[in-house]
Amino acid sequence: MSAKVPASPRFAYKGDRLKPLRAFCQTARLGSISRAAEALFLSQPAVTLQLQALEREFGARLLERSGRRISLTREGQELYELARPLVEGLDGLDGAFRERVRGLDAGELNVAAGSSTILYLLPKIVEAFRATHPEVRLTLHNVTGAGGLDLLRSDAVDLAVGSMLDVPADLSYEPVYRFEPMLITPRNHPLAQKAELELQDLSPYGLILPPQRLTTYRLVDLVFQQNRVPYTVALEVGGWEVIKQYVAMGLGISIVTSICLTEADRERLATRSLARYFPSRSYGVVVRKGKYLSPHARAFTELIRPALFEREDYYANGQSER
């Protein structure tokens, strides 16, 4: 008969590795085996056996006695830094889980959106949502571009509402409505009275545009370049409300999306559709693929469509105020 190969040492505690690691972390934190045993409701010999077994497994001395206090060796310090977040995370798992479940029921909803979406599109949606879900804490995160995508991917927000031109493969975008590109001028501007508006008619007048890093500026530049029409930028400034104010003051003209045009703008601005030259902008809901939407998130998205349709007739189909 062939000789038996000696079996590798087996330690019973390996069946539950959390116990010796918890004993080790408590001893390191309290500096005493007896105090650690008291905190864990164990006997001091039981904690000592767990610590000894842990040192045998790792093949290193983890603790050393300094007077009446126990301190960590260099190897013990390394293990403590690795083990502590694991032990604390597992010990706090029940409470964290209950908090998450309570959040699903009691309600917390995080929505990412740009300034124009928050200002022009979401007010009635938020109002309706608050009326039907007063117990839900709603947070609107004012972000644009990559910032909103980062929040979605890290699950810092449940969903995003806004406009997207290029949709990454890991996200899902459901466009709900499209807003026309509009020329805005002062009411007494020559372009406001022109019967047929051509793109080259805009060349003599300085444009007021958002910053170059934003999609609107790049889109305007692309359309003028493709049509070989020269243009000038009189002023570059952020915020549709600021742009509309400066146009009303006669400082230039601008090209905006009709989402930002309100009833109050009828009195100070003339608007002309530029759908012949510029694409419309879609607005809708963006979510991370595979993400489970809470009932609150689904309820919020269901409110978007009727709220948008209330704006359908105002500046749609090339309507203009002259």
Score class of each variant (00 low, 15 high):
Glu302Ile: 01
Pro45Asp: 09
Arg98Phe: 02
Ala7Ser: 13
Leu219Pro: 01
Leu222Pro: 04
Tyr120Gln: 09
Pro6Tyr: 00
Gly107Cys: 05
His296Ala: 14
Gly107Pro: 08
Gly238Glu: 14
Leu269Thr: 06
Glu64Val: 13
Leu171Ala: 05
Pro230His: 10
Gln26Tyr: 12
Glu55Gln: 15
Leu18Tyr: 06
Gln200His: 12
Pro85Ala: 10
Asp201Thr: 06
Arg102Glu: 15
Ser2Ile: 09
Phe58Cys: 08
Arg69Ala: 09
Arg298Gly: 00
Gly114Pro: 05
Leu104Lys: 06
Arg100Gln: 15
Lys4Arg: 15
Ser254Tyr: 09
Phe309Pro: 00
Glu174His: 11
Pro6Arg: 09
Leu54His: 01
Ala131Trp: 03
Glu321Ala: 11
Lys19Cys: 00
Ala39Tyr: 05
Leu54Cys: 07
Val5Trp: 07
Leu86Trp: 14
Ser282Thr: 03
Arg137Tyr: 07
Asp170Tyr: 07
Tyr173Phe: 15
Gln245Gly: 13
Arg100Gly: 13
Tyr80Thr: 01
Asp158Trp: 02
Met182Asp: 07
Ser280Phe: 01
Tyr315Phe: 15
Ala36Pro: 04
Ser280Ala: 15
Leu90Trp: 00
Leu82Lys: 09
Gln319Ile: 13
Glu57His: 11
Val287Gly: 10
Thr144Asn: 06
Arg178Tyr: 12
Lys19Ile: 12
His141Arg: 11
Arg98Ala: 14
Ala7Pro: 01
Leu90Phe: 01
Asp221Met: 11
Pro181Cys: 11
Ile255Ser: 02
Val223Lys: 04
Leu104Asp: 05
Ser8Cys: 06
Ser280Gly: 13
Leu82Phe: 13
Ala297Glu: 04
Phe309Val: 07
Arg272Met: 03
Arg288Cys: 11
Leu51Glu: 03
Ser2Arg: 11
Asp155Leu: 12
Ala53Ser: 14
Leu18Asp: 07
Ala299Glu: 08
Gly145Cys: 08
Asp94Gln: 13
Gln212Tyr: 14
